[in-house]
Simulated scan of single mutants.
Amino acid sequence: MNTININRRFFVIAITSFAASTVFASCSSPQNNSAVNTNVNPSATTAANTTTTPAKEKIKVGVTPVPAGEILEFVKKNLAPEAGLDIEIVTFNDFVQNNTALKDGVIDANYFQHIPFMEDYGKKHNFEMYAFTPQIHLNPVGLFSKKYKSLKDVPNKALVTIPDDPSNAHRALKVLESSGLIKLKENVHPASPKDIIANTKNIQIKEIPGAQAIPSLPDVDLAGVTGNWILQAGLKTDKDALAIESANEQIYAVTVTTLKGKETDPRIQKLYKLLRDDKVKQFIRDKYQGSVIPIP
């Protein structure tokens, strides 16, 4: 009898232990499965949602509003997305702020100036810039007046304003010379008012900042103005100018500029390539009708 009772006890204990193990295992399994699912599912979801589209390269570019700002806006909307370039356009209303921002690293490149202006500005402010060539477009300098319809009507001792930076002053003086109002010393570059050797009408030349040319136009007899300021004022160089600079002066064409040493930056090279695109040239021809000239 004792042997039978002992065996029964062991049998009950064994059955109880087995049941407890089964209950414990059944409670634990969902937690273990849940842990596995937690680790696997997010990565599976991430993999499913991941695209192969590369991130766009961001670049900050300084411009003057017209025409450079409008041209770059065309590039930003129509060409840059496909090229993977995210262009932030930073607009300045004067040349000094634009180059100061470049020097200080506020922008990566700018698009508003020609090479002679860039070189002169760099020398005066003790830093080097790099200009991409061939250039993008030419803003021809013209002679404008609110008072006279023809250069023949310009009176003796007329007050004439020209830009105060050396390169654009030279351009305006050359247009005055080609119009027969003055004669300059030969082979002087850049020429200044001091290089005038003949002045048949004894015109009075005053150098002023380029941005002041249009606001002061009603108060003067004649003004030599670069094309960007003319377009910004809603005028057209080819139609409203009394005389205009030759389109052959491509040294004064506007281009992309950056700090020396950054010209190999892939973003800036891509920007330049987009601005040289044939679609940009056609946009310039269509929109500006000769007031801005694309460079071949």
Rank of each mutant, 00 (worst) to 15 (best):
K279Y: 00
K77C: 06
E70N: 10
D86Q: 13
Q212G: 04
D221Y: 04
K273Y: 07
L159G: 13
Q113H: 12
S192L: 00
I162K: 15
T161E: 00
S178I: 11
V175S: 13
P218K: 09
D104Y: 15
N49C: 09
A223R: 00
D104P: 15
N98K: 02
I214A: 05
F112G: 01
L181E: 06
S29E: 06
K287L: 01
K185F: 00
R8D: 14
N32S: 00
N156E: 15
T100D: 11
I6E: 08
I284T: 14
I208G: 09
T46Q: 13
R9L: 07
K281T: 06
K279Q: 02
P294A: 14
P65V: 01
I4T: 04
G69S: 10
K123M: 11
I15R: 05
A101G: 11
T91A: 05
N199C: 09
I295S: 04
K185Y: 02
Q232Y: 14
G210R: 14
S179I: 07
V61T: 06
F18G: 15
I4V: 01
N41C: 01
V225I: 10
G210M: 15
F127D: 15
S34F: 09
L151A: 01
L231D: 10
I182V: 02
N202L: 08
E82W: 04
Q135F: 03
Y130P: 09
T258M: 11
N33K: 14
H114C: 03
F132E: 04
A20K: 06
N41L: 07
N5L: 12
N37R: 15
G290R: 06
A55Q: 07
V36H: 12
P81K: 03
T226K: 08
T51I: 07
D219F: 09
I15P: 02
N187F: 03
L181C: 09
H137T: 11
S29F: 08
T50F: 13
A247T: 03
A191H: 13
G224A: 01
L102M: 08
G224V: 06
T161H: 01
P190N: 09
I244N: 14
D108L: 08
N156H: 15
T45Y: 07
E207A: 13
V90Q: 12
N33Q: 14
S246K: 05
D240M: 01
R276A: 03
D265G: 01
N41H: 03
V40R: 12
Q289W: 13
P215C: 00
L173C: 03
A131I: 13
S26Q: 15
H189G: 07
T226V: 12
T53Q: 14
T64L: 11
T46V: 10
L222T: 01
I197K: 14
F18R: 15
A101H: 09
F10H: 12
D219R: 10
T46K: 09
P296A: 10
V61C: 04
Q97S: 09
E82H: 07
P116G: 07
T52A: 05
N39H: 12
A169Y: 06
T64V: 11
D108G: 05
F144M: 10
A55I: 08
V154T: 05
T257G: 06
N228T: 03
D104K: 15
F11H: 15
